[in-house]
Simulated scan of single mutants.
Amino acid sequence: MRGADPDPDTARLRHHGDVEAEPGLLDFAVNVQADAPPGWLRERLAAALDGLARYPSAAHDAAARAAVAARHGRHPEEVLVLGGSAEGFALLPGLAPRHAAVVHPGFTEPEAALRAAGIPVTRVLTEESAGHRFDPAAIPADADLVVIGNPTNPTGVLHPARAVAAAARPGRVLVVDEAFADALPGEPESLAGPGHLPGLLVLRSLTKTWALAGLRAGYALGAPELLARLAAPRPPWPVGTLALEAVIACSEPAAVELAARAARTLVTRRAAQAAALAALPGVEVLPGVAPYLLLRLPAGQGSRVREQLRAAGIAVRRGDTFPGLGPDHLRVAVRPAEQVGVLVEALASALARMAA
């Protein structure tokens, strides 16, 4: 289903979970999976501190691209290291699309960046009644840039790779946001591997799995000529030394295996958390597989419940800033069982007060 917003609220599009998660609150609003990077990664970054007096080098960038390329079975020329995947979205207007289409509900930063640059954007809205599944036939035929998340944030839906690939065509750039792909065992339906899909641009983030949100580290995968166009507006030394070192470290086989183990743990935690939340009267946990859950609360109660959770010291992600969702939608990150117990108790209390 297609829908266009003639006067979008840019401030709402640029509302992200970190705004909800103020210090001192139990954080279910941000999808970073740990409180701090693991010890081995901290040591790796600390060892790189002595190099901060020097500018980031081309050799260091080449090493990072080579590590990512080896991880995905690609050539280094098909890798562009980014200051987080959000930088990739900020660079999209430089591709000079005439008409962009963004699949929603989804991460809102791509649309915000495109609209801020004056690029017409059509919202392609997935339907909750259809499980928020993506239909490539809904993309406007004249769209020369398409953005979709896989798995999608905030719905947690994983779209079949064949459906995503069906949106590609000559003359169109297909941007696939795979920020949470490494949180799924085996990275199913990913398009990050080798291939020759025309115009494909895959964005990856290292900030979620490795707790590096404050460092900003990620990368883009695509044809060399497409990456060159994407990178054209960047200033010199766009990615710092520590971020380059993080990209290398997190792309090495041992780190990839650690991420795979963490992904398997997340599956178990997610199932238990979904069951506990779905047992509460009036709470619907929508289908998904990502390391977060999209909830729908009883009609008219979402905003008040969110405020009561905040008063109880718990931050959750509001849903109404995502196009296609409303105030009765909440997104919650997958967390350890003891934290989930606190959330379930507080949510039960809030719902009981609403019912009374």
Results as ranks from 00 to 15, higher is better:
Gly17Tyr: 00
Val32Ser: 12
Arg44His: 12
Asp18Cys: 06
Pro8Gly: 03
Asn31Ser: 15
Ala69Cys: 07
Ala67Leu: 06
Asp61Glu: 14
Ala63Met: 08
Pro37Cys: 08
Glu22Ala: 06
Ala11Asp: 15
Ala58Ser: 11
Trp40Ile: 12
Ala48His: 02
Asp18Gly: 03
Val68Trp: 07
Arg54Thr: 14
Ala21Gln: 00
Leu45Trp: 05
Gly51Asp: 08
Ala58Thr: 09
Arg44Val: 09
Asp50Ala: 12
Asp50Asn: 08
Ala69Pro: 13
Leu45Val: 07
His15Phe: 13
Leu26Asp: 07
Thr10Phe: 15
Pro23Leu: 01
Arg54Ser: 15
Ala34Arg: 10
Leu52Asn: 05
Val32Asp: 14
Pro56Ile: 11
His15Cys: 09
Ala63Asp: 15
Phe28Gly: 00
Ala47Pro: 05
Ala58Lys: 05
Leu26Cys: 02
Pro8Ala: 05
Asp35Val: 14
Arg14Gln: 13
Gly17Asn: 01
Gly51Pro: 07
Pro23Met: 04
Ala63Cys: 05
Asp9His: 11
Ala21Gly: 01
His16Pro: 05
Ala66Gly: 09
Ala46Gly: 09
Gly51Thr: 03
Ala36Leu: 08
Gly39Tyr: 10
Asp18Phe: 10
Ala34Glu: 06
Ala58His: 09
Asp7Ala: 14
Leu49His: 10
His60Ala: 15
Asp61Ser: 08
Thr10Asn: 13
Glu43Lys: 11
Val30His: 02
Pro37Arg: 11
Val30Phe: 00
Ala59Ile: 09
Val68Leu: 04
Ala69Asp: 12
Glu22Ile: 00
